[in-house]
Amino acid sequence: MSDIPNDLRYTRTHEWLRSLPNGQVEVGITHHAQGALGDLVFVDVPQAGRKVSAGEACAVVESVKAASDIYSPVDGIIVAGNQAIAGAPELVNTDPYKAGWLMRIETKANGAAAGLLSADEYAKMLADESH
């Protein structure tokens, strides 16, 4: 069973999103996504300063059998990429919701980003997909 923390919100493309106290959001990929990709061998960590809109591809995660785009869940500006995972992509596999975060985004849409799923809704989506 996939690990889906209740305090995060999710996208249909398997990113998670955490609201930080300073108003920024932190983004990563879900436990389910890392499992589907397998052992990650490379992460193209997003560059700080880049302006992104919701749904725009802004990073790539790569395993030996797949490469997958990561889409920004919100409009905003990337303020940090997680440099730790550039040298140790396995962190995304072992700790996808904490040490394996991908980027932080400064956004105005923090509380109200449209189309995001709750943990329950994401869990239901996964259950539907596996049919």
Partner: peptide
């Protein structure tokens, strides 16, 4: 063979 995730049979249009 390595770094195959760059190649057409995995990345297709990208």
């Amino acid at each position: 063979l390595t770094l195959q995730a760059r190649e057409q049979h995995i990345r297709r249009g990208k």
